[in-house]
Design a protein around this nucleic acid. Structure first.
Length: 437
RNA sequence: GGAGAGAUGGCCGAGUGGUCGAAGGCGCUCCCCUGCUAAGGGAGUAUAGGCGCAAAACGCUUAUCGAGGGUUCGAAUCCCUCUCUCUCCGCCA
C-alpha cells in the first residue's frame, strides 16, 4: 500500500510512476472521494466532540444533583445525526481503502522502464553453458526414462499440474532443500523457520496477494462444512513462504537492535495458476504444488537496498555451489510484481529449452507490505517507523531439480549428481536406470 | 466435540455506567540529590487518524481497554455474536 499522504501531496509524481508500470491510477475518483472524506470526517468529528462535551456536562450535573432534562433535550437528535454521518464516513473510507489496496508499489529510480519481459535488463552471467555431443533430452524424458518421475500417478491422484517423484529422484529433491537450508543458516546467517502452510485473510492482505489476486490462490474449507458456504475456514494455502515469513512482524513494533531479521523456510507452495493455461504444461516447471526455500529480510529502511544485493547473492551462492550457469536480470517497470519496488530475477540455464528460465525472484518491497501489515520499529529518535521487507527464493526446489537433470544428463540417460549434494545422498554420484533406484 | 475461566498500555495489575486514555507497581528516558556500583526525590513515558501551519515544533480534535454489533445523552464497565488463550474431559500425530 502506498502512503496516502504522498497521494494527497504529490499525486502527479505518483501517477507518473504508476504509469511506468502500466497502471493508471483513478485520480478523479480518488480526488472526489478525498474531498468528500475531508468534509464528512470533519463534520463527524465535530458532532463527536459535541456529544463528548455534553455527556461530560450531564455527568457533572448528575453528580451535583442538578436537573438535566434541558441538556438532554439539547442532544436529543445528536445521536441519529452522528450515526448517519459515521455511516457515510465509513462508506467513503472503505471506497478509498479499496482503491489503495489495489494500487501496486512504486518502482525504484534504478528500475529500467519497459513493458514486459523483453525489456528486462541483464546485469551479469555466471558459469559455463554446457555443450552436449548427443541429442539433449528434457527433464521429463530423463525422469520418466529413469522411472523416477511419474506424472500419470500424479494425474490420477490430483489432476494436471501435479507430479510424483520416486526413489533417488525424490531423495535428490529432499537433498536439494536440505542443502539450501543448511547453506543459508550456516553461511548466510538466516534463522531457520517452520511456518504454517495455511494462512488467514489478514496475512494475505499484508503481503499483497489479497484482495487483488485471489484467483491465484487455493482456499480451503473445513471438512463437513456446507458445500456452498464460501471459504468456510477462512484459510488459504500459501502461494509462497514469503506470506508466512513476512507476516511474522505484522502488527509488531520490532526493537531496533533486533534488526535486521533474516528468516529462511522450506515449504510447499500452492498456486492455482489461473490464466496460465497452455504455458509450461509439460513437466515440473509450472505446478500447482512445488517446494521452495524462501528468504525474507526485515530491515531498517536505510539498509534495504544493500540487503537486496546481499539477498540476491545468497540465492546465487546456491547455483554456484551446484555449478549451474545462470544470469541475473533486473525486472523492468512493466514486469515487476505488485508489491515490489525493485526485483532481480535469477534465471538458470535449461539446455532442453536452450534458454535461461526463472529460478529465483528477489524483491525489495520497501514499506509497501510493512504499511499494509503495520510492521514497524522504533527509530533513533524514538518514533515508530515502517520497516522495509524483502523476499527472495533461495531457490525454487523443483526448478533446481529440473536444471540438474538437464545440465547433468549423460548420453545413456543417467544423471550425474552435483558433488555438493552427494553427502546428502549417502555418497551416491549418479541417478541411473539400473534397478530404478 | 463437551464443561468452565479469561482477554485492560512495553510488562504486571486495578477498575461493573459519568471529570477514565485509563489507579498503582515494574521497566524505560530526562533532571535533582548523593564523592564511587546502592538508595532517595521530581518530571516524563501508547498507537493510529483528521484539521490548522509552507513545513517542523506545536495547537485543536477523533478513535482505540481481544474483534464486531447493540442499549444509553454517556460504555473498559450492561447485552448479543465472533475470535483467541488457559484448565478439565473426549479424540488424535
Amino acid at each position: 500500500m502506498l502512503d496516502i499522504q504522498l497521494l494527497r501531496t504529490d499525486p502527479n509524481y505518483v501517477i507518473a510512476r504508476l504509469n511506468s508500470r502500466n497502471y493508471s491510477f483513478p485520480v478523479d475518483q480518488f480526488n472526489h472521494l478525498e474531498t468528500e472524506r475531508k468534509k464528512i470526517q470533519t463534520y463527524t468529528q465535530e458532532l463527536q466532540a459535541k456529544r463528548n462535551a455534553v455527556s461530560k456536562q450531564i455527568g457533572l450535573a448528575k453528580s451535583k444533583g442538578t436537573d438535566t432534562t434541558a441538556i438532554l433535550a439539547e442532544v436529543a437528535n445528536l445521536g441519529d445525526e452522528l450515526k448517519q454521518s459515521v455511516i457515510q464516513l465509513e462508506q467513503i473510507q472503505s471506497k478509498l481503502q479499496k482503491i489503495l489496496l489495489e494500487v501496486p508499489n512504486l518502482p525504484h529510480d534504478s528500475v529500467p522502464h519497459g513493458n514486459g519481459e523483453s525489456d528486462n535488463l541483464e546485469i551479469r552471467r555466471w558459469g559455463v553453458i554446457p555443450s552436449f555431443e548427443f541429442e539433449i533430452r528434457d527433464h521429463v524424458s530423463i525422469g520418466e526414462g529413469l522411472k523416477l518421475l511419474d506424472f500419470e500417478a500424479a494425474t490420477k491422484l490430483s489432476g494436471s499440474r501435479f507430479s510424483m517423484m520416486k526413489g533417488n529422484l525424490a531423495r535428490l529433491h529432499r537433498a536439494l532443500a536440505q542443502f539450501m537450508l543448511d547453506t543459508h543458516i550456516q553461511e548466510h546467517g538466516y534463522t531457520e523457520t517452520y511456518t504454517p502452510y495455511l494462512v488467514n485473510h489478514d496475512s494475505l492482505y499484508g503481503t499483497g496477494q489479497l484482495p487483488k489476486f485471489e484467483e491465484d490462490l487455493f482456499a480451503v474449507k473445513s471438512g463437513g462444512s456446507a458445500n456452498d458456504e464460501e471459504h468456510a475456514s477462512g484459510l488459504y494455502l500459501i502461494p509462497t513462504a514469503e506470506v508466512s515469513l513476512t507476516n511474522i512482524v505484522r502488527d509488531e513494533i520490532v526493537a531496533a537492535h533486533a534488526l535486521p531479521l533474516k528468516f529462511v523456510a522450506h515449504t510447499p507452495c500452492f498456486r492455482s495458476e489461473a490464466g496460465s493455461y497452455g504455458r509450461d504444461t509439460r513437466g515440473l516447471i509450472r505446478q500447482h504444488q512445488f517446494d521452495k526455500v524462501e528468504l525474507v529480510h526485515i530491515v531498517h529502511p536505510e539498509t534495504s537496498y544493500a540487503a537486496l544485493e546481499a539477498l540476491v547473492g545468497h540465492a546465487e551462492t546456491i547455483l554456484q555451489k551446484l555449478k549451474l550457469a545462470y544470469r541475473v536480470v533486473t525486472l523492468c517497470t512493466g514486469d515487476m510484481g505488485f508489491s515490489a519496488a525493485k526485483t532481480y530475477d535469477i534465471e538458470v540455464w535449461l539446455p532442453a529449452q536452450n534458454t535461461y528460465r526463472e529460478i529465483s525472484s528477489c524483491s525489495n518491497c520497501e514499506s509497501f507490505q510493512a504499511r499494509r501489515m503495520q510492521a514497524r520499529f522504533r527509530n533513533e529518535s524514538g518514533k515508530t517507523t515502517l520497516l522495509h521487507t524483502l523476499n527472495g527464493s533461495g531457490l525454487a526446489v523443483g526448478r533446481t531439480l529440473v536444471a540438474i537433470l538437464e545440465n547433468y544428463q549423460n548420453a545413456d540417460g543417467s544423471v550425474i549428481i552435483p558433488e555438493i549434494l552427494r553427502p546428502y545422498m549417502n555418497g551416491l554420484d549418479q541417478l541411473c536406470t539400473a534397478g530404478g533406484q
